[in-house]
């Protein structure tokens, strides 16, 4: 738990070093640099893996549950 918070803080500190200017964001705007796949594909993948594993959780909340038997 503390390790996780420390890791997040270190990630944050890295960012304070050299901000990327708004005009240097060409590569970051690429679709393959997105943190999730397109909405439909992401939802399908969550369903596929989530219904067969005990673990859950992603970058969002409030998604509700399912009676996945």
């Amino acid at each position: 738990m503390t390790r996780a918070l420390a890791a997040i803080s270190i990630v944050a500190l890295l960012g304070a070093c050299a901000p990327v200017a708004p005009y240097q964001r060409g590569y970051l705007a690429r679709p393959d640099m997105a943190l999730e796949a397109s909405a439909g594909t992401a939802k399908a993948l969550e369903k596929t893996y989530g219904s067969k594993e005990a673990a859950s959780g992603s970058a969002t909340v409030g998604g509700g549950g399912c009676g996945c038997n």
Binding site: L35, G62, G64
Partner: peptide, 19 residues
């Protein structure tokens, strides 16, 4: 019975590029 919490509703929280 599985509680599949947090179905992803949206994509990347950080906008590295414009939406």
């Amino acid at each position: 019975m599985q509680a599949a919490l947090a179905l992803p509703i949206f994509t990347a929280p950080a906008r590295a590029g414009p939406i």
